[in-house]
Design a protein around this nucleic acid. Structure first.
Lengths: 222, 222
DNA sequence: ACGCATTTGTACTAAACAGTTAAAACAAAC
DNA sequence: GTTTGTTTTAACTGTTTAGTACAAATGCGT
């Protein structure tokens, strides 16, 4: 009777037929790992926890990524890549320099705001003295583009006499990054110390516009 | 013969006479722990490592601070307190508003630059969603002062017609903090991606002045 | 039908780690 | 001189953690 039960059970339980989907599995692991690392930090994240949240197993993580560091490295690379490629949609060539710079700034502000996981990974990487980013060649190329984009706008603004001389595109990029980054990275502590006036919904809309003001005023002529 | 050796050794070893210095011991532990947490993060720091670097023992850490979280909490509080009190030296009342704001900005920029451990602790606290700062009442009071200081300068600037209306002291503080903070917090990754033009010695002097420019231009009239 | 890559699942190991135990000895204040 | 808080050791415990062993089965290109 017992064996019959098992036999029936064996029948009803569909033999788990699985597809081969290495890319899907890798992507799923990376997605879960990104969230977990971003949420708890590199040392804080637990491999068992990551494994449990994937649709696959711990065994597969080690199969594809070797060890925890290898996994983190891939998460880091993928995160940078995804965010940077997401920045390319912007068409600013046809706009007047001031308008182009405002759009770029507000776009960056929103973009960082929409990607807190990226911000947190960069924070974590800075905490770890950039030792993983150091050993990743893949990433460096992607970022010069950001500078070129600004340089194009700035040069045009100089020609038209609406921007002052003496600013460097790098410094302008730094300024935009700093404000957009800090807005996300320090949201928690800043809100705790000074209230959420800048970080509730209305506050963010206003702050974005003020950030764009700050950038424009920084490069403005006169 | 062997026992005689031991007896002689027993004589030569000076009975370790020690002083009671609870405050000194606590301070020493906190100092070491700050460096270790700032360097490796909360989960990354090791109690054994901290203990080894103190002039006392692991036992004493637990004697005074209970557990790792308790130690971190005290480090967090002390770090905020030390940095905030270090900001009070500034005498700006007698200066013209523009000059006062420039001095304040450049001071903050330098001050953060001189206290990378503080910056890193704040980063770590943000990574941990501020859960330790949340439960610390001690800290909140210290920070309103920063806003008042700016408000005084801003109001004076309005009276004299050198600042435009419509800026909030909170937003100005946010702006100064963002630029001064980001300069330290993201130094590593920014340098890796874009070179160290802004972060070598000459670059930092220039950047400080540009940051002050940005703040002044943000509030400037016309 | 062959071979290689992929997938499943569980139990395991070895190290790392936070926190404890125990018994003493000493300091300092009263 | 009694009491209370401080300091010294070094071994120890129990848990958490990254990473592995093992064994088998299926997918899929050729």
């Amino acid at each position: 009777m017992e064996s019959q039960r098992q036999a029936e059970a064996g029948k009803t339980v569909q033999r788990q037929r699985w597809k081969q989907d290495p890319e899907g599995v890798r992507a799923n692991i990376l997605e879960v790992a990104l969230k977990e690392f971003a949420d708890r930090g590199l040392s804080g994240a637990r491999m068992d926890e990551i494994a449990a949240k994937t649709r696959t197993s711990k065994r597969m993580i080690y199969y594809y990524f070797g060890d925890k560091d290898g996994l983190y490295r891939k998460v880091l690379e993928q995160t940078y890549r995804k965010v940077r490629t997401g920045e390319k949609e912007l068409m600013l060539d046809h706009l007047a320099p001031k308008e182009a710079l405002r759009r770029l700034t507000e776009f960056t502000f929103d973009h960082h705001s929409r990607n807190p996981d990226f911000i947190r990974i960069v924070m974590i990487e800075n905490i770890h003295h950039g030792e993983y980013l150091k050993h990743s060649d893949l990433i460096r190329g992607l970022n010069q583009e950001a500078i070129s984009r600004i340089e194009a706008i700035y040069d045009k603004g100089l020609e038209q006499g609406v921007f002052r001389r003496g600013c460097s595109p790098l410094a302008i990029h730094w300024l935009i990054s700093a404000l957009s980054f800090f807005n996300v990275s320090n949201r928690v502590t800043f809100s705790l110390l000074f209230g959420d006036a800048l970080h509730n919904h209305a506050g963010q809309l206003d702050l974005r516009s003020q950030v764009a003001d700050a950038v424009l005023r920084f490069v403005a002529d006169e």
